[in-house]
Amino acid sequence: MSKTAPKTYITSGHSGCAGCCDAFAAKFALMGAGPNTIVVNPTGCLEVMSTPFPYSSWQVPWIHSLFENAGAVASGVEAALKALGKKDDIKVISIGGDGSTMDIGLGALSGAFERGHDFTYVCMDNEAYMNTGVQRSSGTPFDASTTTTPAGKVSFGNPRPKKNMPAIMAAHGSPYVATTSIGFPRDMIRKVKKATEIVGPTYIHSHAPCPTGWGFDTSKTLEIAKLAVETCLWPMYEMENGEITQVRKVKDPRPVEEYLRAQKRFKHLFTMEGGEEEIKKIQATADWNIKHFGLQ
């Protein structure tokens, strides 16, 4: 980052893996949110690596309760700030992984959005349960090999496409839902900042490649993140009050094969019989994104 980059409020010295996507995501989220922020962090890699008692990497007030309740905890933090007359000065953001956001914590998050609490939820989507060893979540993409959807003689890996989480959050009537990626720090910081400045429940879904879980070199986290956007497998857009208002264009989309080939979790698609057909299906997803979101 340049010297003029905004200050962040999570220190180095945490125990994240080399090239950790969560460290990037938390750093950028706090650059957007600023110092007057209370962070609610559900269980996951970020919580574990940043708070081994008696140490903490957090320079803002931070609370971790459980895996599935960040939406509710954030609701309570926001309500308490209101009741105590502090809400005008303090922002509330929650930063959670795809498992806690899209699976186990979806009920609590849905409740928080439906009730209209004034907070921002940032999902760091690394597309599987990395903290427990790369098990499939509803954020895992089609045909990715995980430890609970391994590729095998009769399987190409995860049989289902990713859950469309931003659409679910927009359907709650959220004033602002945006997708972003840690591969585009300025985009992410801008969107988090915008989200925290809008009153009401706002949602940022950030794509976050995990070197450990996806199988790529630890120096390539941001490169892989960019490739997901450039192959149109991860469209970046903003939705205001349910309508798409801004889309990041991809001038010359690259073939998905480039993205897939760079990661071990898709390796089987290049070795198994029928793999080519599978890659075509994934290309069709990218093509649909291009058309649906007007990426070109």
Binding site: S75, G76, V77, A80, L84, S110, G111
Partner: peptide, 23 residues
């Protein structure tokens, strides 16, 4: 503030957050 939560699990979870703020 009265929070009409969507489940008891969230009822107690919201109070965890609120109590930690000093409510």
């Amino acid at each position: 503030e009265y929070i009409n939560v969507e489940a008891e699990f969230s009822a107690i979870s919201a109070l965890i957050g609120a109590s930690a703020v000093g409510a």
